[in-house]
């Protein structure tokens, strides 16, 4: 099932109280932390976001090859501490673009990439960018992973938490708008979008469809203990693939 037929079956956003109960942001983002995953150690300076379960779902699918990147031009939109970039490097992407609006996250990604992937791996292009604004003009990518900070509730007054969690539809609109207007996705390219029903999931998928993408569900995670459902979508330009 794809397109608007799929859209009609997607879950509605959870009630605000339920979202607040699930997402209880702490002030830990202002401290230095560490993260361990797949045998790798990551350092998180203040301001760099600690990955949650949703992010780990993307990391695992990149690592197990469900989201293929080998030989392809890959962009991690919202590079964070750099796990996606590192995995794509290890999996042999052609080139890895790491984009984030937060300069320290991009520097952190570059440090982790240099230490774990090393100079023998694919080249890393670290970019401080506002969604795609700042991505070099005239270049294209084949694969993008996008885990938007899409909760729309004001969960916090802390700008670091807002940047990582609460930007809502606006950031998704800019993501698709710029991707299409500047023709940044190569022929046959794919965007892997991960969203849960704590975000305006249906509206964001509708934006993708209205921007000319076809949507296919690759994975649904129904987390135990709450009503959160997380969807991993593959989005491809319809006009290019002929996908219905």
């Amino acid at each position: 099932m794809t397109g608007w037929e799929l859209h009609a079956r997607l879950p509605h956003t959870l009630p605000a109280g339920e979202i607040r109960a699930i997402n209880n942001p702490s002030g830990a983002i202002h401290e230095h932390r560490t993260y361990h995953w797949n045998g790798w150690d990551f350092d998180l300076p203040p301001g760099v976001f600690h990955p949650g379960e949703t992010s780990r779902l993307v990391h695992s699918r990149l690592l197990d090859g469900t989201l293929p990147v080998a030989g392809l031009r890959y962009a991690a939109m919202g590079a964070g501490l750099g796990v996606e970039a590192v995995v794509a490097g290890v999996r042999g992407a052609g080139v890895v673009y790491a984009l984030d609006v937060h300069p320290e996250s991009v520097r952190t990604t570059a440090r982790h990439y240099e230490r774990i992937v090393g100079t023998d791996g694919p080249p890393l292009v670290p970019l401080v960018a506002d969604v795609w604004e700042g991505f070099p003009d005239g270049e294209q990518v084949d694969v993008v992973t996008f885990n938007p900070p899409a909760i729309e509730l004001p969960l916090s007054d802390d700008p670091e938490i807002v940047r990582n969690l609460c930007l809502g539809r606006d950031i998704a609109a800019r993501f698709f708008g710029q991707l299409v207007a500047r023709d940044l996705l190569a022929e046959g390219g794919v965007v892997y979008l991960i969203l849960s029903n704590t975000a305006p999931l249906r509206d964001i998928v509708a934006m993708a469809l209205e921007s000319g993408f076809g949507a296919e569900v690759l994975h649904v995670e129904d987390w135990e203990g709450d009503n959160v459902q997380t969807y991993l979508f593959a989005l491809r330009r319809e006009s290019r693939t002929g996908e219905g």
């Binding site: 300069p103 570059a110 401080v128 700042g134 003009d137």
Partner: peptide, 18 residues
Amino acid sequence: LDQNRRVERVGQLLLENP
């Protein structure tokens, strides 16, 4: 396009200068 190029340059500056 101009705005994008300037943001790209600002991004480089931010990356190189904490």
